[in-house]
Design a protein around this nucleic acid. Sequence first.
DNA 1: TGCGAACCGTACCGTACGTTACGGTTCGGC
DNA 2: GCCGAACCGTAACGTACGGTACGGTTCGCA
Lengths: 216, 216
Amino acid sequence: MSQLARKIEDFEADPLTERQQAVLDAVLALMVEQGGSLTMTDIARRASCSKETLYKWFGDRDGVLTATVRWQASKVRAGNYDAQKLDAAALRESLENFARNWLTVISSSTSIALNRVAISEAASRKSDLGRIVLANGRLAIGERLKPLLEAARAAGLLQFTDAETAFRTFFGLVGRDVQIRLLLGDAVKYPSPEIAADAARATDQFLTLFKPHTKA
Amino acid sequence: MSQLARKIEDFEADPLTERQQAVLDAVLALMVEQGGSLTMTDIARRASCSKETLYKWFGDRDGVLTATVRWQASKVRAGNYDAQKLDAAALRESLENFARNWLTVISSSTSIALNRVAISEAASRKSDLGRIVLANGRLAIGERLKPLLEAARAAGLLQFTDAETAFRTFFGLVGRDVQIRLLLGDAVKYPSPEIAADAARATDQFLTLFKPHTKA
DNA sequence: TGCGAACCGTACCGTACGTTACGGTTCGGC
DNA sequence: GCCGAACCGTAACGTACGGTACGGTTCGCA
């Protein structure tokens, strides 16, 4: 089968076998611990499989990387927030949870390694890795959070004209310089309590900026 | 001379000749137009110089990249803001200028290419490129902006406890998701008027969050 | 028990690239 | 006009890596 056919199939649905998942987990582990330059030989050795199998399953090196990104994305995806009984306290808690989750994800060694690989590949055109990471990361969380923001606006808890713009501000308040610093190799510690504190602060700031004027 | 000696010399001071600057400009152009995979052969051809010369001047491939990053940084460095006659209008204008400059820089194709290379190299340890980009980018602007913030606090125009924390919030409000999207290859247009509007919005938001409480 | 499919490990091939070496040219100083 | 330094263009070398081929092993299945 051609690589193209294989890739299209991957794109539409990838019912990965247990073994294939284990292989992709090995790729993730390898990305984390040895950085960007992963060779097919490294992957095969680490996953205890033959290179021939890698090529049969994933087509080529880019296919392996793409499948790995998709696999990780499928593990991270979480449920949407439901907008039932939304009051000020529930909104704050949802936003804070959201911020905490996001900060935890982007500061994880897996996410850092994955984004580095995707950015490297985005530099040399020829690969959709960047787009895939973007779609499953930044863009996905935007789509997940916007319904909450709109529900909050409907409930009179927030005021804004464009949910996308509001979300991007929240994104900035939460992430700040964390991701770029980590991607560039800044060895900054980011323990869970600090993440929680930053999530709370970002949420406060966001609520301050977008609270309805006809209050306070 | 050894590569090590050459690198140390570069690190401390690099009085580049015109010709060397032209070579590094060629590297920058190459980074922008052909992405991450720049070979020494490509560089030599593009710069119309021999590979032997590249190795004599810069030691090795990493030396070329490092010198290129430093060269670009030396071109971008701008003067500090002076905190004379600081009133609310001057503060707002300084912040807005700052935001506009920063957004212009990070959305430039040169910056995108450079950051991609640095992140790629940061993945495979072995290089200080990431640290250098960080020092001349994110960290440098922090050091340049903090005096302004502190002067504004002294003048009663802002209220915060830690200038670094306040700056990071400003950084987040300005940059939001722009840099990560561009690095991942999102083909988003960002024309100058839109940058100006975003800079104004971010400044407004920042002033709202950090204005002294004993006012309003 | 025999057979074929799937897979592992390894050897192999072709190429790309970092690095070095070398012949030829330009140019400033004597 | 001659010399050496600096530099250009290109060829050459060694290695690393993507991709392929192949023999050997396991395992489901008749």
